[in-house]
Amino acid sequence: MQGNRNIIKGFIIIFAAAIMFGSVNMTSAASINLTQKQKENYYKQYTLILADINKKYPNSGLSLEPMDKFNSNDWVKPTTFKKIADKRATTNFVFKPKHKSDDSFDGTTKTKSMTVSGKNTKTISITGSFTTQLSSTEKRQLFSGISAITSKLAIGTGSWTQTGYEYKLIDGGRTYVITVGGKYTDNGISQPFWIDVEFYCNAFGSVG
């Protein structure tokens, strides 16, 4: 602590997200070799399939990656692609604390493990860097600002791109509610997600 200010860096919360694409890994089991003309034909069918699924699930936000961004494993039969896309449209990030100690306050660097059961689980890690300051009226440390909020795909296939974040400071400066926005991409399909995270500051300036 320097004076009445305390800079907290490298505070990490790790989440596991259940994103399941069926009972088997369909991409590795069903990827096929195609000519350029076949790829163009499949891509047109993929476009129509996603349009139908987005009509069925208007909040899914599924979008097709550009054709030149497809990996070799992304090319599957349209029937298989439909199954993958249909699963993606009805899934979301689900969080469950793994240990009671996840909510403890034990210093400036901390890892919270969140997990769910299921196949093909993805893990997004969210890192928050904060400042705290001693409140003369409350006689305790409170949050005074956010230095940075970053996130990444820590475990699993595909990619995660953070698009931004929003925050609210509540409980008289004791709690930050952070909503991290990002785009998850796999199997040639991109989907937006908004992940809510809460960070707590205790009386001594440690974050949990």
Rank of each mutant, 00 (worst) to 15 (best):
Q2K: 03
G3N: 06
N4C: 06
I7V: 11
I8Y: 00
K9D: 05
K9C: 08
G10T: 08
I14H: 09
I14Y: 11
F15D: 13
F21Q: 07
N25M: 04
M26F: 09
S28V: 10
S28K: 12
A29E: 13
A30G: 10
A30S: 12
I32M: 14
Q38I: 07
E40N: 15
E40A: 15
N41I: 11
N41S: 13
N41G: 07
Y43A: 07
K44E: 14
I49H: 08
D52R: 08
I53A: 05
K56E: 15
Y57G: 01
P58V: 01
S63Q: 15
L64T: 08
P66V: 12
P66Y: 11
D68C: 01
F70I: 05
F70N: 12
W75M: 02
W75Y: 09
V76W: 03
P78H: 03
F81V: 03
F81M: 02
K87F: 08
F93T: 09
K98Q: 07
K100M: 12
K100L: 14
F105V: 09
D106A: 15
T108H: 08
T111H: 11
V116H: 12
T121Y: 02
T121L: 08
K122H: 08
T123H: 15
T127E: 04
T127I: 14
G128M: 04
F130C: 02
F130D: 00
T131L: 04
T132Y: 00
Q133Y: 05
L134G: 06
S136Q: 11
S144D: 02
A148M: 15
I149K: 02
I149T: 04
I149G: 03
I149H: 02
T150P: 06
K152P: 06
A154C: 02
W160Q: 01
W160S: 02
Q162L: 04
Y165H: 10
E166P: 01
K168D: 05
I170Y: 03
G173F: 00
Y176R: 00
T179P: 02
T179L: 12
Y184D: 00
T185W: 05
S190I: 07
W194E: 14
F199Q: 06
Y200V: 04
Y200M: 01
C201N: 05
A203W: 06
A203K: 14
G205R: 00
G208N: 07
